[in-house]
């Protein structure tokens, strides 16, 4: 009898914990609902300058029916994503290699570090005029601009990770008489995986932002193009629809990257169990 009572007491505590954990699951949903409500509120009335949810929804349905430049909404999203993926692939390969080089080799860092730091300060979009002059307004210049934007975070993070390997890990290499190559491949690079992945995460979000801006400057496809089209033709529901898509896709990209990190570096899932 007494034991039952104890269990009851415990379960009450646990129930409160359960409730707590549920609150955390409900909160994001509540935020979205609140935002929707706010949206409805500000877009009410004839005089409102804010496209209403129904207008955006109808614009979405219309876009399914009548593609813009032969592409539906998802076609445009995919066009943007393709540019981002190509640029990211190149930025990761080149950025990680370069980051390792200047993070590991002091001479290379002394030689190239300052130049890189100066280039880093230039926003990717500042390259638009020159890149347009050199390569026109085709696919390549857009990818190139995204590449520039995505390259910086990868290099910076990789370099920091490689240059700041914890001494105790390096000591392990010394104890086992690792040579320079083994030090780099077996100790420094794996220990910098966290940092490198932080760079990959940042570069993905940076790349996704820059591609939209690059598309707004000229082009015939992509979500950035849709926004410009909406602006030029006073089609504000289209603008807002595109913005929502940008947000959703950016969110999904972040989840994909997080998932990748779990698979590639299982040890970074710190003390979760």
């Amino acid at each position: 009898m007494k034991k039952e009572k104890e269990e009851l007491f415990l379960s009450e505590y646990e129930r409160r914990e359960l409730l707590q954990s549920r609150i955390y699951r409900v909160l994001p949903v509540a935020a979205i609902l609140l935002l929707l409500l706010l949206w409805v509120a500000v877009s009410r009335g004839e005089a409102s300058k804010f496209p209403s949810p129904t207008a955006v929804w109808e614009r979405y349905l219309k876009l399914l029916d009548r593609p813009i430049k032969n592409l539906g909404l998802f076609g445009h999203i995919w066009a943007s994503l393709q540019r981002v993926f190509i640029a990211l692939g190149a930025a990761w390969v080149i950025g990680i290699s370069f980051g390792i080089l200047i993070g590991w080799n002091k001479k290379a860092n002394a030689l190239l570090g300052p130049i890189f730091t100066a280039f880093r300060a230039v926003p990717p979009l500042a390259w638009v005029p020159l890149v347009t002059m050199w390569f026109g307004i085709g696919e390549f210049p857009k990818v190139l601009i995204v590449f520039v934007g995505a390259l910086m975070p990868v290099v910076v993070n990789t370099q920091a990770g490689i240059a700041n390997v914890q001494k105790e890990y390096m000591d392990i290499g010394t104890i086992f008489h690792a040579n320079g190559r083994q030090m780099l491949l077996e100790i420094a690079i794996p220990s910098a995986f966290d940092a490198i992945f932080a760079g990959i995460r940042n570069s993905t979000s940076a790349g996704w932002m820059v591609v939209l801006a690059a598309e707004m400057l000229g082009g015939k496809s992509g979500v950035g193009f849709l926004i410009v089209r909406g602006m030029d033709s006073g089609d504000y529901p289209l603008c807002l629809l595109s913005m929502i898509c940008i947000g959703v896709v950016g969110y999904l990209l972040a989840i994909v990257i997080q998932f990748l990190e779990r698979i590639i570096c299982p040890w970074t899932a710190k003390k979760s169990n």
């Binding site: 105790e168 392990i172 104890i175 086992f176 100790i187 794996p190 220990s191």
Partner: peptide, 25 residues
Amino acid sequence: FVFQEPSALPWKTVEQNLRFGLELK
């Protein structure tokens, strides 16, 4: 050597940690 601070390589499993020195050699 075994030092005061335990220092296994966090990105390697237990078995990989044990193999580490031998593989370097």
